[in-house]
Amino acid sequence: MADKNAASCATCASPKKKGPCGGKGMLTLKDGVWGINPLAIQVLGICSALAVTNRVETSLVMGAALIFVTVGSNLLVSLLRNYTPHRIRMIAEVAIIATFVILFDQFLKAFYWDLSKQLGPYVGLIITNCIVMGRAEAFALQNPPILSMVDGLANGLGYAAILAIIGFWRELLGTGKVFGLTVLSDHWYAPNQLMVLAPGAFFMLGAVIALFNAIRGPQEEEDKK
């Protein structure tokens, strides 16, 4: 938990873990999912977290997409880290990330056309998702490939978990259903349409972040980035 606020912005590369990879795997995994959870603690990449979470299904697909992209791009950035000139590293990272995003987008279009339609432009927008860029910049540039993959997986999982939580509550409260199956019967439950619309997303994300803050206890640096 020591470095929870490291890498709070995408551009400042933090030299926090420069040591060898030995024994860091579990710590990295735990950090990504809980300690520096990209969504709840660092508040990065919230655009897609808000946009696709009106149903559980789309939230899960989006989470899977992000895991795929962070793992892939972290691995590739890390492999190339000693060959990339420092000045063009940004554009190299963007190119790598875009490649993985295109792969996933084409996969969705080929096999899950309906989902691809529902997600609309948000799959493409993973390119500009600060989490992916932030992890490439802050972690993969300084760490060996395998550890970087673990870090990408951890952050992707952390992101996907929050997305699933938000998606679950929004679909449940908004339509009374989960995965399209009725849970709260409309005999006694009046679906709150607001939760499926835009404002519900903002309230739910605010509530989830507040919950994280409450569980973690008072944090002195929370708002002073």
């Binding site: 404002p199 903002f202 309230f203 605010g206 509530a207 919950l211 803050n213 008072p218 708002d223």
Partner: peptide, 23 residues
């Protein structure tokens, strides 16, 4: 502001209210 809501969470909630107004 209640302590856990300080910073980003309350900003989110305000944005939610703004989104409602724009609706």
């Amino acid at each position: 502001v209640p302590q856990p809501f300080e910073g980003v969470p309350i900003a989110m909630c305000i944005t939610g209210v703004m989104a409602m107004a724009f609706m």
